[in-house]
């Protein structure tokens, strides 16, 4: 039961709006991760484009079939990966999206469901929202991608978990907010709490890949981490500095965690659906 594999998290600073430079950076990180013996490499949110794109969104959009992605697809024969990009969907809708590439192919596309549009964020102005959260099969086990803000909606994490995901891949572009008083930025501490809580509640691995660097003065804080299914931190990257974070994952740990804490087994899907249905009827 279970197998062991090595995961790498690319804590990088993408160049804002510069696909070409970012593609080279991705290829470089792939080679580094391969040299480290990693089997899977997770890049941050919008790793191919940078985050605060605003009106640049249509200029950097790709489709999963774009020739620009061919070199990364080729590299995925040697190392599986998750990359972040702006997807131009049919109808010219632009999504904040991530691809899971393995064996030279796109295995999964996730379109960010929850687009933050408050405070420093303005995603709904420029982007279309995704309409599904799905787990998918990989050679490492069943996974789900939750893009940054998706994680702040427990329903999205819940769906991923009951759909059988044992690994949550969480590409993130989190700008630091809340002047650090003790430790790091206030929102970074909240992230760390959520990652640990979800790992433990859903008995899954949380693979949180955050970026670093500055865009228009906002500071992405890094601190990428891998949290095991009992809530323990297996690897943690430095705050504010680039890093290729490595962790060996023993997926038999999921079996042990779920034997000890079988909450997912006891999850009442029928009850949840029934009650949500009632709430929805009452609201409409």
């Amino acid at each position: 039961m279970g197998r062991s594999f090595k995961i790498a998290l690319a804590q990088i600073q993408p160049a804002l709006g510069d696909l070409e430079r970012n593609l080279s950076l991705h290829e470089k990180l792939c080679e580094e991760a391969i040299a480290e013996g990693a089997d899977l490499l997770v890049f941050p949110e919008l790793s191919l484009t940078g985050y605060f794109l605003k009106d640049l969104v249509p200029s950097v959009a790709l489709t999963p079939e774009s020739p620009a992605l061919t070199p990364l697809k080729e590299l995925s024969r040697r190392i599986a990966m998750t990359i972040g990009f702006i997807e131009e969907a049919p109808g010219h809708f632009f999504h904040n999206a991530a691809l899971f590439l393995e064996g030279g192919e796109v295995r999964h596309l996730h379109r960010k469901v929850y687009l933050p549009t408050y405070g420093i964020f303005d995603e709904q102005r420029y982007l279309a929202e995704g309409d599904r959260v799905r787990a998918f099969e990989t050679s490492f086990g069943r996974m789900a991608i939750l893009l940054c803000e998706d994680m702040w909606h427990p329903s999205a994490a819940y769906i991923a978990a009951v759909d059988g995901a044992e690994f949550f891949l969480v590409p993130s572009a989190s700008p630091g907010r809340g002047t650090p008083q003790k430790g790091i930025f206030a929102n970074a501490k909240a992230w760390e709490l959520i990652n640990r809580a979800y790992a433990q509640l859903f008995t899954v691995y949380i693979i949180y890949a955050n970026r670093i660097g500055y865009e228009d003065g906002a500071c992405f804080w890094g601190g990428s981490e891998v949290i095991g299914p009992s809530g323990e931190c297996l690897a943690k990257a430095e705050y504010l500095h680039d890093s290729l974070l490595l962790a060996v994952i023993d997926s038999s740990e999921i079996r042990r965690a779920r034997t000890m804490n079988p909450m997912l087994r006891d999850e009442k899907l029928d009850l949840t659906l029934r009650e949500l249905q009632k709430i929805q009827e009452r609201r409409s």
Binding site: T179, Q181, K182, G183, I184, G213, Y214, G217, C219, Y239
Partner: peptide
């Protein structure tokens, strides 16, 4: 309390100048 973690804030601001 308006105190701050001076080590981290210093690093963020120094990084900001260097980067921008």
């Amino acid at each position: 309390d308006l105190s701050l973690n001076a080590d981290i804030v210093r690093e963020v601001l120094v990084g900001f100048i260097e980067d921008e």
